[in-house]
Amino acid sequence: MQLNKHYLLVAVAVGYLALVLFIPGAAVFYEAFHLGIKPFLSAVSSRDFIEAVKLTVIIAAIALPLNVIFGLCTAWVIARNQFPGRALLMSIIDLPFSVSPVVAGLMIVLLYGRNGWFGGFLENIGVKIIFALPGMVLATIFVTLPFVAREVIPVLEEMGSEQEEAARSLGASDWEIFWRVILPNIRWGLLYGVLLTNSRAMGEFGAVSVVSGSILGKTSTLPIFVEQAYKNYHTEAAFGAAVILALLGVVTLVMKEIVERRVHQH
């Protein structure tokens, strides 16, 4: 009786997950390959697709290191200092998670767009931010800002500051302390944050879409390529790109699992 009830609950839970998550997840792979590998290969060898991959990688390659530097600094500031407004600062850092990506994109348009605050100035000096790479990078940075700090703060807090103080009293410079003492201690937490940042940076659609103008072959990232291809009834191309992004997601999940285990060991 008891056992039956357990099975019933498990069945309901797994059934719901299947309906909402797993069947759609499996369908990405089925739709991409159900006609064989050929439509997939032709989809991923098109010029627009390759341009989209390039742009996606470039954006992540700029946004990720910047957010890592910011995340490390902020985590240190919050974990190692007591100051009024500390809780507020933490809430501010989390803000991008609660703001709709479209609103994030809109803000950047209002700032750097033609009629925006800096629009006139930028036009004069001939720099294009909206409908171009810089705007897309800014949007990506905005939506991925909290990840690194969030993951590193608890690790730093747990680590305590004794080791740093010991190193300092032994004459180590700030730089040495960072590389030799702090970094080895926070490496798994940092890696976790980097994984999450990268996955969101490569997968961000809404915010980037608002500032990009979605020009195929020019300002279209992989997630935007998926939408554009689908809208233009190139379903195979859409699923070809979707499967690449889904694979990235699966790899992220697997690595996350591994890193999570390491974090809990320490």
């Binding site: 998926v226 859409a238 990235l248």
Partner: peptide, 19 residues
Amino acid sequence: IDAAVDLPFALPTSVAGLV
């Protein structure tokens, strides 16, 4: 199954919409 609960975090929203 536990790990796959994070799928919506890992899957880009446009891929989710498409599928």
